[in-house]
Simulated assay, not measured.
Amino acid sequence: MSAFQISQKALNATIPLASMASAAVLTMALAEPIMAASNAAKPSSTALSTPYTAQNGYAANKYAVTPPSQGTNPCAATNPCIAKAYPCTAQEVKRPANYKPYQGNESELVTLGSKLFKDKLLSSNGLSCDTCHQGLNMFQPSFSRPYPHEVIMSKNQFGMSHVFLDEMIQVCMVAPMAAAPLEWESKELAALVAYIETLQRQFKPNPPAAKSP
């Protein structure tokens, strides 16, 4: 075999090796952007450890300044009376000046009030009026007396010595149900008043309520 033939044979043997090496380099080069994109798409452990952020929907809920499980009062974010047990002031649950309650058909109001009494969507914490008062439970003996009169909860938490029935409804909206008061001249507030007045007539205190002074 001549020197030329030996040289040509060696050259032919190196071409496939060079091609294989080039292919491997090209494959790795193309794979790097794909791997980088895949790694970038994975959320970091830090992102997963902060669930109550604007990115996951809690910011859309006005009651969720902090996780709902911590029982945040909806008024706490903006009300300056935050040092009180309930930062919403008594003024928010007290009849406004020149207040004129909604007037409507009594039967229709009672029917609507009965539905609202059981409606958990009125609250921010899954409670309804019926949660506490189903079957006339948890009403104080004084509930049988005409309003306005003293109610311990409104007196202790809002400093109101006597309340009207619509004011007492607003107290319950803000305190146990952790929501904003209803509009004062709304049909909904008038409906709850009308329905609760029917419960008042059915209520038999035990022991009998003390007579009003």
Rank of each mutant, 00 (worst) to 15 (best):
K115R: 12
L165S: 01
N12T: 05
T72L: 04
Q134H: 08
V25N: 05
A60R: 15
S114Y: 06
T50H: 12
S144G: 05
Y147C: 07
F143V: 05
S144M: 05
E92R: 11
A3F: 14
P51R: 11
S107N: 12
L189V: 00
F143Y: 06
K211C: 07
L109A: 02
I169K: 05
T89G: 04
K84V: 01
M153G: 02
G159I: 04
S49C: 02
Q157H: 11
Q5S: 14
K94S: 15
P87F: 04
N137Y: 07
Q91H: 10
T78N: 11
A3W: 08
Y52W: 14
K187W: 01
R201W: 07
D166E: 15
L127C: 13
V151L: 04
G135N: 00
L136P: 00
V65P: 01
A194D: 03
A60H: 11
Q157E: 13
V93Y: 05
I152V: 10
R201E: 09
K100T: 08
A23Q: 13
S212T: 11
S186T: 01
Q91A: 15
P74D: 06
P87L: 00
P43K: 04
N39F: 06
S2K: 15
V25W: 04
A60T: 12
A40T: 14
H162Q: 15
N125M: 03
A178Y: 12
L121N: 15
E167G: 10
L199G: 02
N156A: 11
I82F: 12
S69Q: 07
L11P: 00
T50P: 00
T72F: 03
K62I: 09
Q5P: 00
L189W: 01
S154R: 02
F158I: 00
A210K: 15
P148Y: 09
A21R: 08
N125K: 07
L127V: 13
A191V: 02
V193G: 02
P68I: 05
P43M: 03
Q5N: 12
P205A: 02
S22V: 13
L112G: 00
T111R: 10
A41M: 10
S123K: 08
I152H: 06
L48Y: 04
E188K: 00
E167W: 11
C172W: 13
I82P: 07
E108K: 08
S22Q: 14
L109I: 02
F158S: 01
T78V: 13
M28V: 15
P16Q: 02
Y99R: 07
P87N: 03
M177C: 14
